[in-house]
Design a protein around this nucleic acid. Sequence first.
DNA 1: CCCTTTTTGTGAAAACTATCACATAAAAAG
DNA 2: CTTTTTATGTGATAGTTTTCACAAAAAGGG
Lengths: 218, 218
Amino acid sequence: MNLPQKIAGVNKNSIPRLVQYKYVLKKVLASGSDRVYSNELADAIGITAAQVRKDFSLFGIMGNKRGGYSVSDLLGIIQRILGSQPGQDVIIAGMGHLGIALSNYKGFEKEGICIRAGFDIDPVKCGVQGNIPVYPFSECEGYISNRNIKVGILAVPADAAQLVLDVMVRGGVEGVLNFAPVHLMAQRSCVIHDVNLGVELEFLLYFVNALNNRGGKA
Amino acid sequence: MNLPQKIAGVNKNSIPRLVQYKYVLKKVLASGSDRVYSNELADAIGITAAQVRKDFSLFGIMGNKRGGYSVSDLLGIIQRILGSQPGQDVIIAGMGHLGIALSNYKGFEKEGICIRAGFDIDPVKCGVQGNIPVYPFSECEGYISNRNIKVGILAVPADAAQLVLDVMVRGGVEGVLNFAPVHLMAQRSCVIHDVNLGVELEFLLYFVNALNNRGGKA
DNA sequence: CCCTTTTTGTGAAAACTATCACATAAAAAG
DNA sequence: CTTTTTATGTGATAGTTTTCACAAAAAGGG
């Protein structure tokens, strides 16, 4: 399974925006204010105010006419929609630089996400890398099933990715964030979300080249 | 400027797909075959054959009825559309683990992309990290203008990102791949493409939680 | 209490994207 | 040479997402 196409009529593009609203709301709350307007949220993430309100409308979120939104209320609602709960455990397969970078990422714990462990076939990488314990990959499946881990991150080379996915899925993982530049197939039901950094860079290059060499025409 | 909305009627979603077709075509070519069908490309990246043909139709790419496409021809055309040329120089600001991971990324040089140098304020990170020379950040602007660098990668903490972007833009950069989880504003014309790894993980978590706790209903 | 200002909430319209379905061409088979 | 098979190319259709525009509610001033 790749991403499910449809969760009960929800605009899929609005989900990443909700996550971004959440980030902004936390900043605003930390700054002491408990009031926010759609245009402030819009500016903070680079979209229009109408889009913000439409997103909220879609999820039945209501503010006060002329009074904007209560930051703390809004935050609570959005977190409930996103299913953000403390203690969402995640593991990483592949403790190269990308794996380590993800394990160090400061933002996760604030969101209740906890990177529990890493796994690698290379014994040199095992032990402790930065913040998390790293175990031999052979222990991955057992770790997942024993601790009931639901989400894994795939930061292994492309040629190992399918194999590692299979192990994770056998362990019982239900979702995978895949950084390997290959299309994967899960044996059992497992949501796979691909992030291909090469594609992201080449996507950018296309626009830079297009605006340059072709004056925005082709 | 954020991403330009429109480059002459092109479906923006088709661009990352073109990049993926390119990757697949290179693999096919390496495997010795010079013929490929829309359904093969589709399967390789997890979409439908109709989508592949529609993308091609959009860019005026034509194959042979019943004969599929010549892999080498197709590759040439797609590379021309994407503006892939040898010698596209890129620099990285911020040589933490993410920066190093990107500088090590094997895929880039095959696509004619060359990560030339890294920059960091931390003297400890300067010198040589993996494959590339790393210079003090103070030299960043000069390096960009002297070598006519057009694209930069931002792998610095959120609170430094806007400052670093300003320096890059002053140097003459025209496109930036931004990994910092903040919305940036370029002083002058510069395409910014954001990749927020936290958002990507939380996006996945939403679907896992939604399918689990709410049985795909909410 | 009424008028003005401001900001929300949302149908309707517009824009964009993906899917369908089938005519068309080419190859292969008989 | 005719028929059958197979895969492309694309107009039409369906679906999704964003933008528009404006009524309605709340707040404040006089």
